[in-house]
Nucleic acid binder design. Structure first.
Length: 376
RNA sequence: GGGGAGAUACCAAAGUGGCCAACUGGGGCAGACUGUAAAUCUGCUGACGUACGUCUUCGUAGGUUCGAAUCCUGCUCUCCCCA
């Protein structure tokens, strides 16, 4: 994997660049749609590549390991072939499931023991086997096993957790260096900064992560309930330390405003379930602000979902029709909403790239942030 | 014409003397969702008030009772069976 910065913004830490992988190029800053179990929920791969123009998508180690299982993925020739997606894939390690399935797992030095949410069976994830699993999946970017701490989180817990995440990182990185890809293309391995909302822990973690010399670095454990301002402070703290010439990935973030604020602080990669999950639940992100398409006020509104029309669904359908689909419980509604939201998110990062190049990013960002948060 | 059953909020449907402004579903209205156990979850849905509450409701008109959606009588309407 290779990363080149093309332009640095003069008024902020934003930058635009290009990641090159064996499955193609990824212009940054970028948003990566989440496809946990080998599917970006409700979206055909064809829509994803041709209409939404996604450059890279996510998969999840925990979910893919449980279903369909590694034997299927290996026989298929890896996840790309299995799901027929030829562009890059990044896999999360299962660290987020350590957080979201907290009542079904037990952590120890060795790793994380899970009770499957599907059939209750017991499984052990270690820093090493999570690398092996991601080798079998064949993702272009693999993530280290970490503990995504909850919020709020006691200092002592965050500190202990961080020590564990760092130990796991050392082991995972060793495993990464000592193993080979299975499908003939290279795979990168990103370590993850933790430390909850404590600046000293974040600094300590960022130094540890930077010392590994990985091809890219991630920031985790944010947007788990803390105020946005706190998240931005942590990003600033961490990005002062993380190498500037490597991509920085802010995991699980976020709202359109979060993404723009992240970009201005030097983040290059984002992923979030929000455009798809909220889209399925009737929430649309538009250039004018947030729409709850189920609201009665759209009943007779025959205008496009978004006036800037970021995808074919905006030109083909009206708000009134989309509202009707949701009210009637038609599955086309969530599909259209997901396509729109993802297109909008991709539009947002594309525009960011453009404004960074043109030197107009900060002003544009500031006006957008206000607009994006308003409720229509 | 004779016999039987029934009328409860937007709809369906519980409730058959006080725990009933009335279970539950649906519908309607609104909210939540951030490395996806989510096409999910939550709240409201007689009126007025933030709330304790107050007022008007269970076809309709009366009555019994300290107290009625619930008991009694008249009326109106609906459905079923027999002729």
């Amino acid at each position: 994997m290779d990363f080149k910065i093309l332009y640095n913004d003069k008024h902020s830490n934003a930058r635009t660049g290009m990641i090159t992988t064996c499955h193609g190029e990824i212009p940054t800053p970028i948003f990566m749609p989440v496809g946990t179990v080998g599917s970006v929920k409700g979206i055909h791969q064809r829509n994803l590549s041709e209409d939404i123009k996604a450059r890279i998508i996510l998969g999840n180690t925990y979910h893919l390991y449980l279903r369909p299982g590694l034997d299927v993925l290996e026989k298929a020739g890896g996840l790309h072939r299995f799901i027929r997606w030829e562009r890059p894939i990044l896999t999360d390690s299962g660290g987020y499931q350590v957080f979201s399935l907290a009542d079904r797992r037990k952590l120890s030095e060795e790793g994380a023991k899970f009770h499957s949410h599907i059939d209750g069976s017991k499984h052990l994830f270690t820093p090493e086997n999570v690398v092996d699993i991601q080798r079998s999946i064949g993702s272009d970017i693999m993530m280290a096993l970490d503990e995504c701490t909850p919020y709020p989180c006691e200092y002592k817990y965050a500190d202990d957790s961080l020590k564990l995440t760092h130990k796991w990182l050392d082991r995972g990185f060793e495993q990464y260096k000592n193993t080979e890809p299975k499908y003939g293309f290279s795979q990168a391995f990103f370590p993850i900064v933790q430390g909850s909302v404590y600046a000293d822990l974040r600094k300590q973690s960022a130094e540890k992560i930077a010392s590994k010399g990985a091809e890219g670095n991630a920031i985790g454990g944010l947007s788990v309930g803390e105020p946005a301002g706190m998240m931005y402070e942590m990003i600033e703290t961490v990005n002062e330390i993380l190498p500037k010439d490597k991509p920085r990935y802010l995991m699980g973030v976020g709202t359109p405003a979060n993404i723009l604020e992240g970009i201005s602080r030097g983040i290059d990669m984002f992923d979030c379930v929000m455009p798809t999950r909220n889209g399925r639940n009737g929430m649309l992100f538009t250039s004018q602000g947030i729409i709850n398409i189920k609201n009665e006020k759209w009943r007779y509104d025959f205008s496009p979902v978004d006036e800037i029309m970021t995808s074919f669904v905006d030109t083909d359908y009206t708000k009134a029709y989309l509202r009707h689909l949701f009210i009637a419980g038609e599955m086309l509604g969530p599909q259209i909403a997901s396509i729109h939201n993802l297109s909008f998110y991709l539009w947002l990062v594309n525009e960011s790239q453009k404004h960074i190049k043109e030197g107009t990013f900060t002003d544009w960002k500031n006006s957008m942030v206000k607009q994006l948060a308003s409720r229509l």
